[in-house]
Design a protein around this nucleic acid. Structure first.
Lengths: 349, 349
DNA sequence: CTGTTAGCGCCTTCAT
DNA sequence: ATGAAGGCGCTAACAG
C-alpha cells in the first residue's frame, strides 16, 4: 500500500496573510469568519475585502484538527448487483450531496474493500481516521449488521430504510405500503378489478415486502381480485427470463389480471415483455405501473406510470438527522416516513 | 448557512497513547507506520500490537495538516439530465472509489451549488479549502470550461474523456470509434449489408460524434450500405417519442436496414420500440446493438448486445494519472485510450 | 473590540 | 535505532 507522498502545490492564502493585508490580527480574521457579530462593522468589511481579494478559505484540515468537526459525512455506496441494480444510486447521491452542501458538509464515498462484502472494516477505518462526522447507510435490512456495528461505535448515523426495533431510530423511509396501495386505488379508479403484483416475494427485502403487503391489504379492502405470484421471482430470475415466463403464465386465461403493479421499473419492463408475448397490448389490455420513476419510464412505449420517490426530501431528512446528532441534540422519535407520488403516464392512463 | 458546531465524540486512540502502551516514544510509533524499515523488528512488533489493540489509526486531519497530503480525490458528479441520464454513474463511481482506495485515497463527491450549472465556484471552494489532492472530471467536452479552469489552478486533475489540444493531456478515454467499428464488423460477420446508426448527430457530445464517425468509416471500408439519420435525435426527442417516429421511418421500405447500431442502451430501447411498431422482430428481422452494457440489456427481450466499457481500467487509469501528478512526476503523453468489449446477446446473435 | 497565548495530532529535522 | 523540539493553520480561552 503506497504511503505518504510529497506534494508540491502553489501556496494558498493563509489566515496570517489575510490578517496582514487587513491590518488586523489573525484572531480578528477568525472572528470575522466564525463570530461576525463580535467584530466592528468597518473592521469586518475590511477583513472581508481582504478575504475576497486573496481568495482565502480556511484550511479545512487545520480547522478540523482544531475543532474536531470534519464537516464531512460518509456514504456507504451500496454494492451494485448487476442483476438488481440500485435504481436510485445516481439521483439519490446527487440529492445527498446537495443536502449535505446546503448544511456546509461534504460527502465522502466509501465501500468495502474490493472482493469483500463486509462493510464493517471500511466503516471502522473511516471512524478511526476521524474522517467523517457521521454516516449515511442506505438499503438497510431488518437485522442489518452494519447498523448494529455503527450504533456500537457511537458515531452519528442515519439510514435510508428503517432500523431494527432495538436500534436508534434515526431513519428516513418512504411509505412503501401506502405507495402500492395508492397504485391499487389508481388502477381501481380506472376500472380494473383483477390486479396482480409483480416482484420478488419473501421478507429478505423489507421495502419489497412492504410494497407487496400494501398491495394485498388495499386489494382486499376494495374487494378486488388480487394475484400475488407466491413463488416470487428472485432478482436473478428476471435476468434469466424465467421471470417473464412466470408473468406470461399469470396473464393467460379469461380471468387474467387487467392491471399489474410492479415492484420496480425493471420488473415493469419484464411485465411489458410478458404482455407482448401474450399478444396483448400494454395500456390497452393490461395497465402497468412501475416503481422508482427511473428515466426508463419515459423511454418505454407506452410511457410507464411509476411511483416517484421524494429523493431530495429523503436526503434532507437524513442530513437533518445527522446534524441533530452531531450538535448533540438527542434525537428521539420514530423516524421519518415520507410519502411518494404516483406519476401517471400512458401505461395506466 | 449554519457554521461550526460543537461535536461530542468518544475519544479515539492517539499516537501518544499507543507510544505509552508500547513503551516507546511517539516518533517510534510514527516511524513504525511511515518508515517501518527504520524500526527494529521486535520493537516494530510491539508497536504494531499496541496499534492493533487500541484500534489506532492516525488522525487524517492532523496528518493532512502536517504533510499537506489530503489523501482525498474530488469527483465532480455530473449533472444528471433525466432525459439523458449518465448510464455509468453508479458503476463508474464504484470503480473509482475502489481504485482510489487501492491507492490509499478517498473519494469526495461534489456538485455545483443547487440551481447552478457552473461547477467552477464549487471547484474553487474545494481547492481553496485544500480538501483534495486532485480532481476527476467526467463527460468532458471539447472546449470544456471546467478543464480550462482547473488547469489554471494548477491542481492535479484527470478527465474521463479527452481534453482540448492546448490543455494538459491527462485523460483516459475509450476508443469510441473503434468500438462502433467493431459493432459494424460484428454485424457484417452476421451477414448484414444494410446497417443504420441510431443516436444524436452533431458535435456537441464528442463521444457520440466519435461513435458515429467510427460507424461511418467502417461501413465505408467494408462497402456496406450505411444509414445515418442526419437530423439526429437530440436526447429529449427520444423522450417525446419523436425519436421512435424517426426510427420507424428508417425501418420502412424494402431496402430497410437489417441491423442497427445504437449510440446508447436507452436509444437501443427506442429502436426495439420502433422495430416492433413496424411489425418486425428484434433479433430476427433486425439486429440491434447498444452501448454501455447497462443492466437494462439483460432485462430486454431479446437480450441486448452491447458495448461494455472497462470501467475498472478507466478508474485505475484516472487514479494513476492523478497519483503521478501528485508525486510530482511530470506526466507526458497523449492520454490513455482503452478498448471496449462487445458483449453479444440474442439481439444480434 | 482586539491581541496574545496555547495546543489540537502528527511528522520532520536534528541530536543522541 | 530511538528521543527531544518545532510547527503545519487554525480557533478557544483569556488579557488588554
Amino acid at each position: 500500500m503506497p504511503q505518504g507522498a510529497p506534494r508540491p502545490r502553489r501556496a494558498a492564502a493563509t489566515i496570517e496573510e489575510v490578517a496582514r493585508a487587513a491590518g488586523v490580527s489573525r484572531q480578528t480574521v477568525s472572528n470575522a469568519l466564525n463570530a461576525p457579530q463580535r467584530v466592528r462593522p468597518d473592521t469586518l468589511a475590511r477583513v472581508r475585502a481582504a478575504i475576497e481579494r486573496l481568495g482565502y478559505r480556511p484550511d479545512q484540515s487545520a480547522r478540523a484538527l482544531r475543532t474536531g468537526a470534519r464537516r464531512t459525512l460518509g456514504y456507504l455506496a451500496p454494492v451494485d448487483d448487476p442483476y438488481d441494480p440500485n435504481p436510485l444510486m445516481a439521483g439519490f447521491l446527487e440529492a445527498l450531496v446537495d443536502a449535505a452542501a446546503a448544511a456546509g458538509y461534504r460527502l465522502l464515498l466509501f465501500r468495502p474493500a474490493p472482493g469483500t462484502t463486509d462493510a464493517r472494516p471500511a466503516i471502522d477505518e473511516l471512524i478511526a481516521a476521524r474522517q467523517v462526522d457521521g454516516l449515511v447507510l442506505a438499503d438497510v435490512l431488518r437485522e442489518d449488521p452494519r447498523v448494529a456495528h455503527v450504533a456500537r461505535t457511537g458515531v452519528p448515523f442515519a439510514t435510508f430504510g428503517r432500523t431494527g426495533p432495538g436500534e436508534p431510530q434515526h431513519w428516513v423511509d418512504i411509505d412503501n405500503g401506502a405507495a402500492t396501495a395508492g397504485v391499487v386505488r389508481h388502477l381501481a379508479d380506472r376500472g380494473h378489478r383483477r390486479i396482480a403484483f409483480a416482484g420478488p416475494a419473501g421478507e429478505a427485502l423489507p421495502w419489497m415486502a412492504a410494497r407487496r403487503a400494501g398491495f394485498a391489504a388495499e386489494t382486499a379492502r376494495l374487494g378486488l381480485t388480487a394475484a400475488l405470484p407466491g413463488a416470487g421471482s428472485p432478482p436473478a430470475a428476471a435476468a434469466s427470463g424465467s421471470g417473464v415466463a412466470q408473468l406470461r403464465a399469470l396473464l393467460q386465461g379469461p380471468d387474467r389480471p387487467t392491471a399489474v403493479a410492479a415492484g420496480s421499473d425493471l420488473t415493469a419492463l419484464a411485465v411489458y415483455e410478458a404482455v407482448r408475448a401474450e399478444g396483448l397490448v400494454v395500456g390497452r389490455d393490461v395497465a402497468v405501473v412501475g416503481f422508482h420513476d427511473t428515466p426508463l419510464c419515459r423511454h418505454l412505449h407506452p410511457a410507464l406510470s411509476s411511483v416517484r420517490l421524494p429523493l431530495r426530501a429523503i436526503a434532507s431528512g437524513l442530513v437533518g438527522l445527522l446534524l441533530a446528532q452531531i450538535r448533540g441534540e438527542s434525537v428521539r422519535g420514530e423516524g421519518l416516513v415520507l410519502s411518494t407520488e404516483l406519476v401517471v403516464r400512458a401505461s395506466s392512463g
